Structure formats: structure tokens, C-alpha cells
Simulated scan of single mutants.
Amino acid sequence: MEKNVFVVVGRGDKSREYRKGNWTLDETMVLIQAKKMDCERREQRLKELPRGSSGRPQEMRWKWVEDRCWGRGCYRSQNQCNDRWDNLMRDYNKVRAYETSSSVGGNPDLSYWNLEKNDRKERNLPSNVLPEVYEALTEVVQRKRSGAASAPPGRPMEEKRRRGPGAGSPAPLHARPVTTTDSEDSQHPISPQRKRKRGEGSSSNTLELSSAIMKCASIMAEALQAGEKQEEVRHKDLISIERRKAKLEESKSVMGLQSMDGLAAAINMLASSILGLVTGRVQKLQNK
């Protein structure tokens, strides 16, 4: 069971014990609601400011979000809220970009909300974005875009209605914590600029890695093909050499047989000559 770890931070005569570790779903929804209210508050304030004036610094805005979350039972620091918000928006933008891509093409089976965790990871998508969180973030994004008339495609609630009642219905909000990978970020806050750069660089790094893997695979395939061709040439050369050896052996055998036949014929001729000579001498001796 997850333990609630708190860090005490002093502020003059006051102190706050900030909770550390993974964010629960309730804490996440409180943060999104506080961020939505902050956007509405800042929009109203900008309308009232004279032209050319600037709003409060970024740190002051997140301090307001921290105070709002603290009043709703989400005991997180402004740095934790900032880092958690960056992580939420990064995952939201990935899911939204996938839902609006041509690869989905209105096919409900390919929708993010109908994919298994392994399928999401294979598509370089976050594996644990909940429909409730996506819907709440959509409202905040629409608010920032000055109340766009149409909602972005691929809304999870529409997918749930399309799949029918009872299909993959989530557990109650209070009974299900959201396990996230940003607990270390909460303990060691990272500036929003660094986290944005890290999020923007992840896609380019993935593309570069994919390109390098494709190049390595192409080089390996070419090397294997060249090796197979060289092996085939060697095999053909060996067969040609064996054939030449067989022809030489056959030629040697034929030449040997021909030599033996010639020698036998010469011996026969010599024997015939000797026999004729002896016969002639014998006849001469008899005639005397």
C-alpha cells in the first residue's frame, strides 16, 4: 500500500507538509480544476488591465494554483503542480495527435481508448491516460483557445458510448489511484522550460533512432547479400576445378592406354622381325 510521505516547508510563522510520491486521480482532478479556474481568473484580469500591461509572473500563478489545491485537500507544492501539469499536457497532446491522425481514420478499433497497454506502447503512446483526465484537460484546452466551438476528435466518452454500456467502465474515482512516472519529478522539481524541451526532443530522438536502425538493417542486408554472392562464386569455382581435374585424369588414362597399345604393337613387330630373321638363317643353313 502506498505511503503518504510529507515534506515540511516553513513560511515565516506557517509551515506546510507537502505530500510526495505518485499522484492519485483525486489529486489530479483537483489540479486540473484549479488550473482551469486559474485560466479563467487570468483571462478576466487581463481584460481589466490597461493595454500593454503584463500579468503576474509564472511563479505567482503556480503559487495561486498551489493554494487552491491545498484548500481542496491536494497537498502539493507549486513545483510539483507545475511538473505534474507538464506531464499531463504532454500525454494529452500525444493522445490527441494520435486520435486526429489519418492512421485512425474514424476506425473505433484503432482508437486509443480501445487499445491494450502493449499496443499503446508500440505506438509510442502513454499507457495510462484515463478518460476522465482527458475530458477535463480538453475543457481547459478549449478554454485557452477562447472557447472553440467544436471539441477535438477522438473524445473518450464518445468512444465509450460507441462501445456500449458497461464496456470497460472505470472504477470509482476514490478507489483508484493513478500510478505515474513523475514521482521523481515531484521530489526533484524541474523547470517548465527543461521539461518542455525534453518532451519536444523525445519525438525527434525517436525518429533519429528509427532512421539509424533502418540504416543499420539496410547495411546488414547488403552485407549478407554480398556474402551469399561470394559464396556462390566460390562454389562455382570449386565445381569448375573439380571438372578440370576429372578431365585431366581422364586424359592421363587415355594417354596411358594409347602408350600401352603402341608399346605392344612395337613389341609384336620386333618379335615378328626376329622370327623372320631366324627363319631365313635356318633355311640358308639347310640349303647348304
Rank of each mutant, 00 (worst) to 15 (best):
E200H: 02
L209S: 11
G168P: 04
P165N: 12
M29G: 01
I267E: 09
G10E: 14
C69Q: 02
K288F: 12
G201N: 15
L115A: 02
R163S: 15
R196W: 05
K63Y: 08
P57K: 06
K3Q: 10
E40S: 06
T24F: 00
G201M: 15
R84H: 07
S253Y: 08
R56N: 11
I32M: 00
E139I: 06
L173N: 05
N128S: 10
K121N: 12
S103T: 14
L270R: 08
S204Q: 13
M220V: 10
K247H: 11
R68Q: 08
G106W: 04
W85G: 00
D109M: 06
L130K: 14
T179A: 04
S259H: 12
R243I: 10
T24V: 02
Y18N: 09
L270C: 07
G73K: 10
S191P: 03
P152E: 04
I213V: 10
P156Q: 02
T180K: 02
Y98Q: 05
E116V: 01
K236S: 05
L49W: 04
K20S: 09
K197M: 10
G105M: 07
K195T: 05
R72T: 04
Y134M: 09
E250F: 08
A171F: 04
K20M: 15
E232Q: 14
Q80I: 10
N268E: 13
Y98W: 08
E17D: 14
A34Q: 03
Q258L: 15
V140K: 02
R243H: 14
P126G: 05
R72P: 00
E27N: 13
V254R: 15
P189H: 12
C39A: 10
L110M: 04
P153K: 06
A265H: 01
P108M: 13
K245Y: 06
G154E: 03
R90L: 05
S210M: 11
I239G: 04
R45T: 07
E249Q: 11
D83L: 01
L263W: 06
A97Y: 09
I241W: 06
S272Y: 11
R244A: 14
E48P: 00
E208V: 11
H174C: 06
L137K: 07
V30F: 00
S101W: 01
I32S: 07
T100I: 09
A266E: 15
Q78H: 09
P165H: 09
K160H: 06
K117E: 10
S111I: 09
P152V: 09
R281G: 07
R143E: 09
R120M: 03
R56W: 11
G262W: 05
R90F: 15
V141C: 04
P57Y: 03
S259Q: 13
K160P: 01
R243A: 15
S53C: 14
S203L: 02
N128G: 04
R51Q: 13
S102M: 12
K121W: 07
